[in-house]
């Protein structure tokens, strides 16, 4: 009996901490992020909206994978008529392809700027605007102060922000709620058919505030993310390690 009450107290305390850290429980809208097994990694098993997420990529090919994963995620978490602002100084995104991930390309507004300073300014302004569903920014680097400013902006407006930036040797501490790394994996073939099958990604959740980081292999099937049927040995090993750690 004392055991259960203790667990209850822990849960209550944890949710208190979350609230004090500026995370409002997104109570009025419960979104299904379509993340499949990954959802367990988040606090309260809900994808944190109204926060800033950070995506790192190593190579240009992986930035395409990051965009793909992000588009799939966005199509699940934003409202049906939501507007997305895509802010970038070096945009290579091909708008018509977003439709394949369930996003309406005409509901995206692209802001193409000249330099990083303008991107950060526009990002800050956009995150304060409650009319948007999500803001995606492509930047080169971000320091703690800048990320803190973005986090403060979203706490007020409840807009969800995503920053895509290249991997660096020494990564600055940021105030972002999570850090992700998406890498492309060989696609899953369907029934041994020739050609390219369903794209597969290695999704590394490197950091998540009050959650459990981990590694997953995910595929996008019918708009939802699903665990890959035959994950590679490396991922399996990392997964068991992380489970052991948390245990």
């Amino acid at each position: 009996m004392s055991r259960t009450s203790k667990a209850d107290i822990f849960a209550a305390l944890q949710s208190d901490i979350l609230r004090l850290q500026g995370f409002k429980p997104s109570s009025h809208i419960q979104v299904d992020a379509g993340l499949g097994p990954l959802i367990e990694a988040f606090p309260n098993a809900t994808f944190p909206l109204g926060a800033v997420h950070e995506f790192r990529f190593e190579k240009i090919e992986d930035s395409a994978a990051t965009n793909g994963f992000l588009s799939g995620l966005l199509s699940n978490v934003i409202a049906e008529h939501g507007t997305i602002l895509w802010i970038s100084a070096t945009r290579t995104l091909f708008p018509p392809a977003l439709k394949n991930y369930g996003l309406q390309p005409d509901r995206c507004i692209f802001i193409d700027l000249k330099n990083q300073k303008e991107v950060m300014w526009a990002m800050d302004e956009a995150l304060k605007c409650g009319a948007l569903s999500a803001v995606v920014g492509e930047v080169n680097e971000i320091d703690f102060t800048a990320s803190r400013r973005l986090q403060l902006a979203v706490e007020k407006s409840q807009v969800t922000g995503f920053i895509i930036l290249p991997e660096e040797k020494k990564i600055n501490t940021t105030a972002c709620v999570s850090r992700w790394k998406i890498t492309a994996l060989p696609s899953t073939t369907i029934d041994d058919l020739p050609g390219i099958g369903i794209p597969k990604w290695k999704v590394e959740l490197l950091r998540i505030r009050n959650g459990k980081p981990g590694v997953w292999e995910l595929e996008l099937r019918k708009g939802k993310f699903e665990q890959s049927i035959n994950p590679s040995a490396e991922t399996l090993k990392r997964n068991t390690e992380s489970i052991q750690q948390t245990a």
Binding site: A64, N67, T92, L93, F94, A97, L98, K99, N100, Q104
Partner: peptide, 11 residues
């Protein structure tokens, strides 16, 4: 928007 043909996300 057409979805019948595969198009790359980055061009």
């Amino acid at each position: 928007w057409r979805t019948d043909k595969q198009r790359p996300l980055q061009i």
